[in-house]
Design a protein around this nucleic acid. Structure first.
Lengths: 235, 235
DNA sequence: AATTAAAGTCAACACTTGTACACTGAAACT
DNA sequence: AGTTTCAGTGTACAAGTGTTGACTTTAATT
């Protein structure tokens, strides 16, 4: 059975035109993805969603789902990819707006908080399924996060922040920061509304943690400078 | 409708005797908890389990479930409590075996790895649902983790490791370490078997991260020593 | 205008799910 | 002994699930 194209193999979700204009298929595909995210708003995890629920929320009949994904798993992977894009966009924006605060770390943290709130659903998904979902999704997320981490390390190097440190070490440090960030994201996301004091404490804590990491980084001494320079999870 | 006792209110799961001996009720209760954990072995998340599945695995009829819990949510909370116990036991054991390695951090990390593997299911549950499950479970886990963190901070103080640091700061630091630990737990748990190199890289990275944190801690200077000494999440 | 590809619909299936209710049987108390 | 309590069973049901195959509609290609 030929089945000429089967599926756009999960990657390459956006080719703006396939023969006409905005393409209808694309639109419902996005509707499905969006619907899934939307259903996770009130504390539900992706793993707990049913295919039918998603189609219902998207305003499509259940069977239409299969024109886009083989099953929920594949939809999840597509969401991971979307999330990865969101993460990298965060870096891109951070790169432009070189925060010229009196306190750079605090500034960045505030920007980050804003970003998390603006992209609430994506972060909910990524942070939530990072340790929870299926093996496959978990690994996909890990890949994206590692990617993000490495890019961040490279930026740090470009900034000339820690000239003495090897790439491997920078990656290790950024891994720590990213970890911190994702953890904070969860906390930020289920902050009770209008509790500015609790919010303040949370952010303070976050700032101090990042500060401590960088303090450690400043004092870090390489042992054997290049033994495994790129020895992160670049398996 | 009186319903004299309704349920042992989720806490106090063990009163060894309620009028006789080891009590039968207790045994199936434990069977249920254990069954739930067991079902999570192959990468499934707690949220994705059904009540019936659990009872099936426990070798009990579905309706028997209600003699012990109001629903899966409550069973989840019981598991959190169990997990909390496991966490605190880790600290207790660490307290006794003051690792006298040439490299103390590496030693502790190895002990930790062993502990995670020995209590695989509990860690799977805690790390997995920390960001994934229902709001209630998430919060319960957060409480346990905070508890663990604070206890660890106190231990660190007792050890006289960082005499200059306030309790609040110690908690902040331990929060960082615990975060690192839970993250590592996930990585450890879905390590592919018999890949000693990947395992080694993972552990190395973990060790270096903890080392960096402590390096930062050594250099940490308090700003206003007691402004919010106990200002962690002790809300 | 006729043809064709395929996104979306409809109806139906074989299951699984959570929960209600009446029951049984064994221990515990009198 | 007889009675009571209650963990565990059996049956049943309404609702939701993933997936099927045959269909209609839309829109691009000839």
């Amino acid at each position: 059975m030929p089945s000429r194209e089967d599926f756009p193999p999960s990657t390459a979700p956006e080719r703006e035109e396939a023969g006409g204009r905005g393409s209808r298929k694309q639109r419902t595909r996005e509707a499905l993805l969006e619907a899934a995210l939307r259903l996770m708003r009130e504390g539900r995890s992706f793993t707990g969603l049913s295919l039918r629920e998603v189609t219902r929320e998207a305003g499509v009949v259940p069977t239409a789902f299969y024109r886009h994904f083989h099953g929920m798993e594949e939809l999840g992977l597509a969401l991971v990819e979307e999330g990865g894009v969101t993460l990298r966009r965060l870096l891109r924006e951070a790169r432009r707006t070189d925060v010229q605060f009196t306190d750079m770390i605090r500034g960045s943290v505030l920007v980050y908080k804003r970003y998390v709130e603006d992209n609430r659903l994506q972060f909910l998904f990524i942070a939530g399924e990072r340790a929870g979902g299926s093996q496959q999704i978990r690994e996909a997320i890990r890949r994206e996060v590692t990617h993000f981490t490495n890019e961040m390390a490279q930026d740090l190097r470009g900034l000339g922040a820690f000239p003495g440190l090897s790439t491997g070490t920078l990656q290790m440090i950024c891994g720590l920061v990213v970890n911190c960030m994702l953890n904070a994201a969860i906390d930020i996301l289920d902050l009770p509304l209008n509790q500015p004091q609790q919010e303040q404490e949370l952010l303070d804590n976050f700032v101090r943690q990042v500060r401590l990491i960088f303090l450690g980084a400043q004092r870090w001494k390489e042992k054997s400078p290049e033994r495994g320079a790129a020895a992160e999870k670049t398996a």
